[in-house]
Simulated scan of single mutants.
Amino acid sequence: MDNVISADGTSIAYDRLGDGPAVVLVCGGSVDRMSNAPLAALLAENYTVYNFDRRGRGDSGDADVYAVEREFEDLDAIFAAAGGSAHLYGTSSGAALALLATAAGRPVNRLALWEPPYFLEGAEGRPASDTASIYRAFVAEGRRDKAAEYFMAEVVGMPAEFVAQAKASPWWPAQEAIAHTLAYDATVMDDYSIPVAAIKAIHQPTRVLTGGVAWPWMAQSNEALADLLEDGSHVVLAEQQHNVDPAVLAPALTEFFGS
């Protein structure tokens, strides 16, 4: 593990693996860099992979006030460590962050997005537009467990039985520890619509990847997103759910980044 210092003084931890063109990995909500560790190990066969903890989670620091722009600056520091530019991969809400960072002018060579959770107009299941406020209120009240439970049940839509099992599992305390970052991802997602204005600023080749058994609303929005991008493409990975198998995803990313 190593670290870089972001523009606001926050320490951002990362693992560097492999040798070759640089690839930066961005994790999604409710997880830290360990969620991308198996993928990083596979990509390291062909690339130098920078797998980092987003601020507020894992071994990275945080600041008193959150703004999406601070995460852009965190990426600036990682890109500098990677030699100035890199391919960029993001998963779930981390894919939305990667998209916005690219639109904001970060030095991205190629952009790959795994199932960014956007909703088309009228799609069922869209989370409440004030989810960031809901998470912040729970955390401020000392109810981190309720923030994590709300994410799983109301935003992801997991059944009550799954949530109950999760709360009794050994990894639940880790969910509570990073519950404050759920508001960060909700801020990134805004109202969960495709950010059409931002997309117009993306000129890099961009691959949107979706699982073959994705939720219908996600499959539809991912295809629509790819169509809106200037140089976008959409690939479906057969039989994959949102929790994608790294052994299936890594070859798809290797093909795209190497093309």
Results as ranks from 00 to 15, higher is better:
Leu99Val: 11
Glu69Arg: 13
Gly56Lys: 03
Leu25Ser: 10
Ser35Met: 09
Ser85Gln: 15
Pro21Asn: 06
Ala98His: 10
Gly83Val: 08
Leu43Glu: 03
Leu39Phe: 04
Leu25Met: 08
Leu99His: 11
Asp53Ile: 05
Ala95Glu: 14
Gly90Gln: 11
Ser85Met: 12
Ala44Tyr: 03
Asp8Trp: 08
Ala77Gln: 10
Gly9His: 09
Arg54Gln: 12
Gly105Pro: 04
Gly28Tyr: 00
Leu25Asp: 07
Leu42Ile: 02
Leu99Tyr: 06
Pro21Met: 00
Phe52Tyr: 15
Tyr66Arg: 04
Thr10Arg: 13
Arg106Ile: 09
Ser60Ile: 01
Gly58Val: 03
Asn46Leu: 03
Ala22Asp: 05
Asn46Val: 00
Asp62Phe: 09
Leu39Tyr: 08
Tyr50Val: 10
Glu45Ser: 01
Asp76Val: 07
Tyr14Arg: 01
Asp15Gln: 06
Ala67Cys: 06
Ala80Cys: 13
Ile78Leu: 07
Phe72Cys: 04
Ala86Gln: 13
Ile12Lys: 01
Asp32Gln: 09
Thr91Lys: 14
Ala81Val: 14
Phe79Gly: 12
Asp62Trp: 14
Arg70Glu: 14
Ala22Phe: 05
Gly28Pro: 00
Leu75Gln: 14
Ala82Asn: 13
Ala98Arg: 12
Ser92Phe: 11
Val31Thr: 14
Leu17Glu: 11
Val23Arg: 03
Ala82Ile: 14
Ala41Met: 06
Asp74Gln: 09
Arg57Asn: 08
His87Phe: 12
Asp15His: 04
Asp8Pro: 08
Leu75Cys: 10
Val49Phe: 04
Ser92Val: 13
Tyr66Leu: 07
Ala81Lys: 15
His87Leu: 08
Ile78His: 03
Pro38Val: 06
Ser11His: 07
Gly18Asp: 00
Ala103Ser: 15
Asp64Tyr: 02
Leu39Ile: 08
Ala13Tyr: 04
Leu42Trp: 00
Val68Ser: 06
Ala95Trp: 07
Val65Pro: 01
Ala44Val: 03
Ala96Ile: 05
Gly9Lys: 08
Ser35Tyr: 10
Phe79Leu: 13
Cys27Lys: 06
Asn36Cys: 08
Val24Asn: 00
Leu97Asp: 14
Pro21Ser: 06
Thr10Cys: 12
Thr10Lys: 10
Leu42Pro: 00
Leu17Cys: 08
Val31Trp: 01
Ala101Lys: 02
Phe72Glu: 10
Ser93Pro: 11
Gly28Phe: 01
Ala13Arg: 00
Val24Gln: 02
His87Tyr: 12
Ala81Trp: 14
Asp74Tyr: 08
Asp64Thr: 14
Val31Asp: 03
Val26Gly: 00
Val49Cys: 04
Asn46Tyr: 05
Asn36Asp: 08
Ser92Thr: 13
Gly105Gln: 12
Ala63Arg: 09
Asp74Gly: 07
Val49Ser: 04
Arg54Lys: 11
Glu73Asp: 15
Glu45Met: 02
Gly9Ile: 05
Ser30Lys: 00
Ser60Gln: 09
Thr48Phe: 03
Met34Gln: 14
Ser92Leu: 12
Gly9Tyr: 09
Asp59Cys: 09
Ser60Glu: 07
Val24Ile: 15
Glu73Gln: 15
Ala104Arg: 15
Pro38Arg: 06
Tyr66Gly: 09
Leu43Gly: 00
Ser85Asn: 15
Asp74Leu: 08
Gly18Ala: 05
Gly29Leu: 10
Arg16Gly: 02
Asp8Gln: 03
Arg55Glu: 13
Thr102Ala: 15
Ala98Tyr: 10
Gly105Leu: 11
Thr91Glu: 15
Ala96Tyr: 09
Gly18Arg: 03
Asp76Pro: 06
Thr48Ile: 00
Phe79His: 06
Asn51Val: 05
